[in-house]
Design a protein around this nucleic acid. Structure first.
Length: 485
RNA sequence: GGCGCGUUCGUCUAGCGGCCUAGGACGUCGCCCUCUCAAGGCGAAGAUCACGGGUUCAAAUCCCGUACGCGCCA
């Protein structure tokens, strides 16, 4: 098979891009990139009521932020590019109608005049009689006379696709293997609504074929619709693409991941300070793995190794703890200069940009290995730029300790004329101080740390002092001492 | 209700008949490093492989059933 691989992600713009959609996008993208194929984005906006322009924008922004570039599809919320344009389904209705007409003309689809009330009644009775609540095919069996009668009465109709009455449809799923569905158990699917518009399952088939998709990789929830879709392909004389159905992503309580489990929108993860690369790596591993159980991947690595056969059939629970670990891992791998630039929005929000004081690069470097999220950077470094806020527990425990006040005053004195005010020299001087006074390291180091930073945890002491500079250090030592009763 | 899918440490998973007294990763715990917190290093605990039957010399791995969970159909 020398055919070029083509995959797509086809969201309905009825909200933001959630984690599940992000993973589906990622897998499609990885698969296409792996096989030097094309990755297409298509907007399924046939639900006029729920589709919004804002959603289109949010979805495009999300996919862009994730770093998944598409070869064809929307350029923005209105325009698109690519040889199969348009990629917005609402602009393709004439195409669907053409194929609809063909099916009807060939007797492969028929008008159904049943009203909502009638359908509800069929279903109610079926439930009562413990039969499956399927459409009983009333209008499929209509005679020409009966049909004319209904037309003459001007009855509204939908259009249903005739499913084969017998046999079975096999979905040869790339992840799950062969899954068989009895045709007589499938109902005649509505492919055109009473309100005069195509339905999801119909558009999807036509677009996937016309856009020459070779692989349809999508969520589990579509597996049950696949046999109907396959029959539509056949009715139109087309060969279906290969299908791969991904398992769901669950929340910590085992139910489908939703709002009440916390952030579900990709953009929320961006705003919390996760790196796109973390999301790619983590999401890749949520339902896919290599035989070696490798955890950390570069993008090249991911592309080279991704494989549908390695996808998990069972659902996976989204684990923020592991996500955080991975983000910390990648933050540590990010050069400081780049990290500062990535953290800019967060630093700006905290008012830490453009302030006098040490260079952000130096300060960030000092705490580099501690960050798990970009959003927590400001809180960990702000004491370099803003007045010290004492952690009450630290103050009581360390600064109120016997002798601490005197240590701070003596230390301020000792350092006020000290030079060079530099890491190694400071360490030597302070250790000397400890020895001279006959104290223990902790009795000196700890009070200094709390006095200059307000907290007991923080960067390595002497380098922190160097970066703060003599003036700030000395004045903070004295200020802290003055606060001790 | 029918149909379909799924079920290995708390979590993500390896495993595709013997290499499994079930491996890795996150998390947890302990130790080391150490000026604190991290990071890092080392180590430990943690899964009768959902359950019950088969098949086989041999099953987490194959078959059947049950339970539970989820999806689709409305």
């Amino acid at each position: 098979m020398s055919q070029k691989i083509r995959t797509r992600f086809a969201p309905s713009p009825t909200g933001f891009l959630h984690i599940g959609g992000a993973r589906t996008t990622l897998y499609n993208w990885l698969f296409a990139r792996r096989h030097k194929g094309d990755f297409i984005l298509r907007i399924e906006d046939t639900d006029e009521v729920r589709s919004t322009d804002d959603s289109v924008t949010a979805i495009l922004d999300s996919v862009k932020w994730l770093g998944l570039d598409w070869d064809e599809g929307p350029v923005d919320g209105k325009t698109d590019k690519g040889p199969y344009s348009p990629y917005f389904q609402m602009q393709r209705v004439h195409i669907y109608r053409k194929h609809l007409d063909q099916l009807v003309a060939e007797g492969k689809a028929y008008r159904c005049y049943c009203t909502k009330e009638e359908l509800d009644e069929y279903r109610r009775v079926a439930q009562l009689e413990k039969r499956p609540p399927r459409y009983p095919g009333v209008c499929r069996a209509l005679s020409d006379g009966q049909r004319k009668e209904r037309e003459a009465a001007g009855k509204k109709f939908s259009i249903r696709f005739k499913m084969p009455a017998d046999g079975a449809t096999i979905v040869d799923d790339q992840i799950r293997g062969k899954v068989s569905f009895e045709n007589n158990l499938q109902q005649d699917l509505v492919i055109w609504k009473t309100t005069d518009g195509p339905t999801y399952n119909f558009c999807c088939v036509i677009d996937d074929h016309l856009m020459e998709m070779t692989h349809v990789v999508r969520g589990d929830e579509h597996l049950s619709n696949t046999p109907s879709q396959i029959q539509i392909y056949h009715a139109l004389g087309w060969t279906p693409p290969l299908f791969a159905h991904l398992s769901m992503i669950l929340g910590p309580d085992g139910s489908k991941l939703s709002k009440r489990h916390g952030a579900t929108s990709v953009l929320e993860y961006r705003d919390q300070g996760y790196l796109p690369h973390t999301m790619r790596n983590y999401l890749a591993l949520l339902g896919w793995s290599t035989t070696e159980s490798q955890q950390l991947f570069t993008d090249e690595d991911l592309i080279a190794k991704f494989d549908l056969a390695g996808c998990q059939k069972s659902p996976a629970t989204f684990d923020t703890v592991k996500l955080n670990w991975m983000n910390g891992e990648y933050i540590r791998q990010t050069p400081v200069k780049e990290l500062v630039s990535l953290a800019k929005p967060f630093l700006e929000k905290a008012g830490l940009v453009g302030l006098p004081g040490p260079a952000l690069e130096r300060v960030v470097a000092l705490e580099h290995e501690k960050f798990k999220l970009l959003s927590e950077i400001p809180a960990l470094i702000e004491f370099f730029y803003k007045p010290v806020v004492f952690d009450p527990k630290a103050f009581d425990k360390v600064l109120k300790a016997p002798g601490a006040k005197q240590v701070l005053l003596d230390m301020a004195e000792a350092l006020s004329g000290f030079a060079p005010f530099e890491d190694k020299a400071l360490e030597a001087r302070i250790r000397q101080f400890v020895a001279d006074k006959g104290l223990k390291n902790g009795q000196v180091f700890h009070p200094i740390r709390v006095a200059v930073s307000g907290r007991t945890e923080g960067p390595t002491l002497f380098l922190m002092l160097e970066i703060m500079g003599k003036d700030m250090v000395v004045s903070r030592l004295r200020d802290a001492a003055s606060r001790i009763a």
